[in-house]
Design a protein around this nucleic acid. Structure first.
Lengths: 160, 160
DNA sequence: AAAATGTATGTTATAACATATCAATCCCTA
DNA sequence: TAGGGATTGATATGTTATAACATACATTTT
């Protein structure tokens, strides 16, 4: 739960199918409907440990006849985010598959500015100094965004 | 440097003029040019401890004949952010004045989803678990985004 | 003072991201 | 099998951000 997995995923086929199965199982448990568009959208996000914009997702969906208008992609992405199967990367206005689907967690991300690879780690930011500051002032934290941008190991040599 | 000040700023006139003076002094030191548009943009952001969208800023600038097209606002905001006089709030796609102008720091924000009030605190996220994870994988952190959204003390009763 | 330079601004157009609205359809269940 | 809620389709629009190019203006150089 702590270690970021994006940069060191060596068997991505297994990774993908495991995460997909977990998402399906979670839907069955919770009575959520994993429709074709939602499933395909999740598969598209799972194809790589990268963040994709809504319009990137839409382009792929559209190639397969699954809808060509923005709301199609945004609705599917919203569903995945709400269900805990994907996260929005605020610094990029883009989306990435969650590597701990269904589990309630406050994710933190390492984002490569060169290749858009995203690694998801955990955070306890709400239990740290910011949480202390919030409690001290009476602020109620509902959601946290923790994102670090920089260069991943693969992109340090070639481009930095 | 640690305590968030947004929710408990009692003398905002002093707050504003101090921050403005600090920004001007920093420009003088660094040879940066605090032009009319940049100055006015900073004043607009300093008017409250809130986050304003670029087009909110633009509307105010435009009322005063300081430019009516998007790049005017974006260029001024970019200058202020680069100079360390303002921050972008990624979760809102909006901008807020920095309360520690010129000082190199990794800010963290408490953001009220009801009134958009923003409190700036410090963070050592790069020295914590995410930093450990980054070092372990060889990721170089260049910039961090730490934002907590929720309800501020003033908005908890009325709206939650 | 004139020319050269560099920074900032003005202007137009468009790219990129996101949502409102409403009608049609699906699918569960009673 | 009819009703009701969720989902999808389709159109239009709203919002955020930048590309590309031209001009103004201050500073330095000659």
């Amino acid at each position: 739960m702590t270690d970021p997995i994006g940069f060191q995923c060596t068997n991505h086929n297994e990774c993908k199918s495991t995460l997909l199965a977990e998402a399906k199982a979670h839907c069955a448990e919770q009575g959520l409907r994993m429709t074709p568009v939602r499933l395909r959208t999740l598969e598209i996000l799972l194809a790589e440990h990268r963040a994709l914009g809504a319009y990137d997702v839409l382009a792929r969906l559209s190639e397969e006849g699954l809808g060509s208008q923005p709301p199609v992609a945004y609705r599917a992405l919203d569903f995945l985010v709400k269900a805990g199967f994907a996260h929005k990367i605020e610094a990029l206005n883009a989306y990435t598959a969650c590597v701990h689907p269904g589990a309630a967690h406050s994710p933190a991300f390492l984002i490569c500015r060169n290749c858009q690879t995203v690694a998801e780690a955990g955070t306890q930011i709400a239990q740290g100094r910011l949480g202390d500051a919030a409690r001290a002032t009476g602020f109620i934290i509902e959601h946290t965004v923790v994102e670090a941008t920089g260069l991943c190991p693969d992109c340090i040599g070639p481009t930095a």
